[in-house]
Design a binder for these strands. Sequence first.
DNA 1: CTGTTAGCGCGTTCAT
DNA 2: ATGAACGCGCTAACAG
Lengths: 350, 350
Amino acid sequence: MSESKNKFNKDMPSARRNQASGATLIDVAKVAGVSPITVSRALNRPDQVSEKAREKVRRAVEQVGYIPNMLAGGLASRQSKLVAIFVPTIAHPIFAEMVQALMDELSRAGYQAILGLTGYQKETEETLFNTILGRRPDGIVLTGTQHSELMRRRLIASGIPVVEAWDLCDDPIDMLVGFSHEQVGREVARHLYAKGYRRFAVVTAEDARGMRRYHALLDELHHLGIDDVPTAFIPPPSSLNAGREKVCELLDAGHRPEVVVCSSDTVAQGVLAEAASRGWTVPKDLAVMGFGELSNASQVYPSLSSVRLDGDRVGGQIAQALLERFKNPDAEIAPLRIDTGFTIVDREST
Amino acid sequence: MSESKNKFNKDMPSARRNQASGATLIDVAKVAGVSPITVSRALNRPDQVSEKAREKVRRAVEQVGYIPNMLAGGLASRQSKLVAIFVPTIAHPIFAEMVQALMDELSRAGYQAILGLTGYQKETEETLFNTILGRRPDGIVLTGTQHSELMRRRLIASGIPVVEAWDLCDDPIDMLVGFSHEQVGREVARHLYAKGYRRFAVVTAEDARGMRRYHALLDELHHLGIDDVPTAFIPPPSSLNAGREKVCELLDAGHRPEVVVCSSDTVAQGVLAEAASRGWTVPKDLAVMGFGELSNASQVYPSLSSVRLDGDRVGGQIAQALLERFKNPDAEIAPLRIDTGFTIVDREST
DNA sequence: CTGTTAGCGCGTTCAT
DNA sequence: ATGAACGCGCTAACAG
């Protein structure tokens, strides 16, 4: 640690100049006694190199501790082997799960992920976007389908493969992996109706997606002959306590539903708490339907039914779509659209 | 979408050649009517460029939609502006929180993070490590202090700033941010003793860190004159149910503790569940101490005390240590060692 | 199957 | 305050 200055002479061996364990392709080539390009090929296209050469290279790599510089590689090949993933936050289990699954899948194909956290206001969405695009990702994963026009245009113009996740919409930028909120609403309605429930109530947050589920639910219930659905709306941010208060209001107003459909598991937990404090048994006295990640609430409240989005599954499908596209970039026609579906986890029957 | 082939002539404008929104520094320079290097400086060292030039550049950037290529920039400057973060998983809230805080802090300083998920066996730790080092990160964050000798040596040799997080140990690679498990054990003992508890029991997972807390707890209790501490060990993986079963065994064996100390909140929830099913009030009939993220268990079980690690705080301190080092690389003496501490969240008193 | 040549897009020198 | 030349480490294209 004596030579503090970083001034390096051009005539010192490159092993001395380069930081991370030093060695470059050229060093490896020298040791192996082949040309640099042969080393490159031995590493990236082994089939184009003789077994003998490969072996020499392998040993040389080992000996000098060579780690390919992907900045240089990416620059030259125009392939960063990077996929940008934009999510609001990873502190929410459902996104964490998706990201985890996605990264795992990508890594086995030799790709790495770079995360863009859009939830923080500190950086504008555009700034974040630019910084990340500066890494020249080979693919981009977006959460949701509502982005600024500018972003959409730039993305389309860039020609980079894009996957929009979680939602299904009509005019995707490129590829789409998600589920239909309308379908969730309808299926929940049918599911509960089929189980025999007739007196419904709803406690829902007022966000766009929750409302889409809600309206589809109402619509389907209407078709089933049910029109009176007492509803309490929660202004954002929704919370366990808000759920509890709102269901209280409904009950205090004299409503006696057999089942309460909630816009999220958090809200549902509030309802469960209220039920417990009234000494009601779930689902006998009151059934509760949640929506979302469930997390460990499922262990705490075995009686909570819920619509579960499977982050693993979504992540896997995104990866699949992306990797497919990398392999076969010509499939420009008919934007891919994958419906991962969702699962109604019925805790009552188990 | 008509010209499908990617063959590009050298004489076509570079805007056509380059993928992501196309423009290069040279394009900007042409439009702005200055030399490329002036553009570079206007963007990276604004103070070295006249206001007039800056304005011209700014407009040209806007016009052509220029996004700097950080692969090229990193290669030339030997600064990737990337920080590698290794964590077992981000599906666990406590790591997610840390990563989120860390990324946020780094991004305001112009750095981005690249994640290495060590929890998956599919890739060996070494492979993961090499792939990520290929991006030439300017800094590295490691979780825990137990790494292979090879990794340690390579890391030290590389000269890249390293922060080890979560644990405190005696021979850090470089910088260290964490807390002492021993200290947690001791403080929990003192805390509970001070509250008047005398009959202790422990339900702990058999992992290394949990055992370190456990032994420190026993040791401190011993100093306080308490030597009989019935303990149940949970072989990995620990779970809510395991916690419940184990505490059952203790109780069935005739032990009547006033307080049960658990190795994690998950285990603690199992204990709470068992207490509930016996009709016991927490903490009156039985107090419970957890450890970890708490997550929404705190809302479900307001009576659960816990030792809380603050992911935000840890993430923030890591960022601070790293950024400090980037600014002042000469501080090679005396490895930094930050104890972020922890908080005993006492739900009983609120 | 292997080597040669010529950049990828940018920042670092050293000039002016 | 601005510019010219050169090189970062690697790979694409074209030879041989």
